[in-house]
């Protein structure tokens, strides 16, 4: 399998087949929380793509060049790698990263800062961001693969979110039976959308 083919597979897999929201069920809370209107969904999508790409890059650098290498503790003569620290470390690194990005954005690009607005801090502890970091390390992706996977996973998240938001905007006008109004019809819709995405399975 050529390298280009491998990346294509990674891309399609991340966006459609193993869609973060609809197949892996990660990042459900923003999926339901900010999908009421299309423009907030777009804002959230932008912020998620931005953070997930950056987070996969940084965490895979840390994982590949720090945690995977065995270190010997001086004076104690213990040799170990620190792979078991990855979840704790990823949480800390992602939270710090988002903080940093927010601070820098506020100064460097106020329009982008106000566009991403409240969504940036919201993503700090989003499980989709955490998920992409752990999947990268579990699959032993290198730094480039991790970044590509992170970016396209976020695109998959954005796709699901925008689709769902568009459907929910239509639902506002639909005559929904009273027991199904509000969140229940949204959950049913999400389920049907997830079933539709099963159609992509076997693509790669």
């Amino acid at each position: 399998m050529g390298e280009a083919q491998q990346y294509l597979q990674l891309t399609i897999g991340a966006v459609l087949v193993y869609n973060f929201v609809l197949a892996r069920f990660l990042g459900i809370c923003p999926f339901l929380g900010v999908s009421k209107r299309l423009d907030t969904a777009l804002g959230m999508s932008g912020a998620v793509i931005f953070v997930m790409t950056l987070a996969s890059l940084i965490t895979s650098v840390i994982y590949n060049y720090m945690l995977k290498t065995a270190i010997t503790v001086p004076y104690l003569n213990v040799t170990t790698d620190l792979k078991f620290l990855k979840i704790v470390l990823f949480i800390v690194v992602i939270a710090a990263l988002v903080q940093l990005v927010e601070v820098v954005l506020q100064k460097v690009s106020p329009p982008l800062y106000s566009a991403l607005g409240i969504y940036l801090p919201l993503i700090t502890t989003n499980c989709a961001v955490m998920g992409v970091a752990t999947i990268n390390s579990k699959m032993n992706y290198n730094v480039l693969q991790s970044t590509v996977f992170g970016f396209f996973s976020a695109v998959g998240f954005a796709l699901a979110l925008v689709l769902f938001a568009s459907i929910r905007e239509r639902l506002e006008l639909a005559q929904v039976p009273r027991p199904f109004q509000g969140m229940s019809i949204a959950l049913i819709t999400a389920g049907i959308l997830a079933m539709a995405f099963i159609g992509f399975s076997g693509l790669c």
Binding site: L76, N77, V78, T80, F84, L85, V88, L89
Partner: peptide, 12 residues
């Protein structure tokens, strides 16, 4: 046997 904990603690 405690070395690994110290390593983890130090790394964090």
């Amino acid at each position: 046997e405690y070395g690994i904990y110290i390593a983890a603690f130090a790394a964090m």
